[in-house]
Amino acid sequence: MFLGEVPAPLLAPLRTAVAPAVAATPPISLQLAGGGRFGSRRRPTVCWVGLGGDVPELTALAGRLAAAARGVGLTVEDRPFRAHLTVGRWRPGQPADGDLPGRLAGYRGPAWPVPEVVLWRSRLGPQPRYERVAAWPVG
C-alpha cells in the first residue's frame, strides 16, 4: 500500500498513528480464494491468489492504514485496495503461462485468523530479505 521506504524520522509517528487504526479492527478471518493475474494473458506480470472471508473488514482496515500513513506525510497509492496475495512474478522476455491463474478459479483454502498487522522492511535484490519493523495486534 505504501510507496517506498518509510523515512526514519516518520517511523515513530507512523507507529503511533497505526496503533488506533489497527485497534479499531474486529477479529477477522481470511482464506485464499480464486486467483488472477496483473497484465494481459499474453504478457502477464504478476500471478495472485484472491482472498475470501472478512474482506470488507480487511478493506476498511486498509483504508484506515492509508489515512494514518497520509496523516504522517507518507505517499500512498491512490488506486482502490484489492485484497490478494502475490504468489509469483513473470520476468519480462521470459516464457509465461498467462492461463495459470485461471486454474486457481475454484480454489478455496482453509480459513485462518489474522492475529496482527506487521510493518516489514524489504531489502530487494538477487536474494530479497524482509525485516520485521513493528507489529500491532488485531481485535
Rank of each mutant, 00 (worst) to 15 (best):
H84Y: 11
A135C: 09
Q127D: 12
R129N: 02
V118H: 01
R108H: 15
W112T: 02
A134D: 14
G88D: 08
Y130T: 06
V133D: 00
D97T: 09
P128L: 08
G109Q: 10
P126C: 00
P101I: 04
R121N: 06
A96M: 07
S122T: 13
R108D: 04
G109H: 08
R132A: 14
G139H: 04
R129I: 08
R132P: 07
E131V: 14
G93S: 11
R123E: 15
A96H: 02
R129S: 13
P110L: 09
L100Q: 11
R121M: 02
V114D: 04
G102A: 06
R132D: 03
Y107I: 05
G106V: 01
P137T: 03
R121W: 05
G93P: 01
S122L: 06
R129H: 15
G88V: 12
Y107A: 14
L119Y: 04
A111W: 05
R123N: 10
A105H: 11
V118C: 10
W120V: 13
V87M: 13
R132H: 10
W90M: 08
R132Q: 15
Q94M: 13
R108M: 08
V133H: 03
P113Q: 09
Y107R: 13
G93W: 08
R103V: 03
V133S: 04
P101N: 00
A135R: 14
Y107W: 11
R129E: 15
D99P: 00
P137L: 01
A96W: 08
G93E: 08
G88W: 07
R108A: 14
R129Y: 09
Y107L: 15
W112H: 02
A135E: 13
A96I: 08
A96T: 03
G98P: 03
R91T: 15
V114E: 05
E131K: 00
L124E: 05
G106K: 05
W136S: 03
Q127T: 14
D97P: 02
R89A: 08
T86E: 09
Q127W: 01
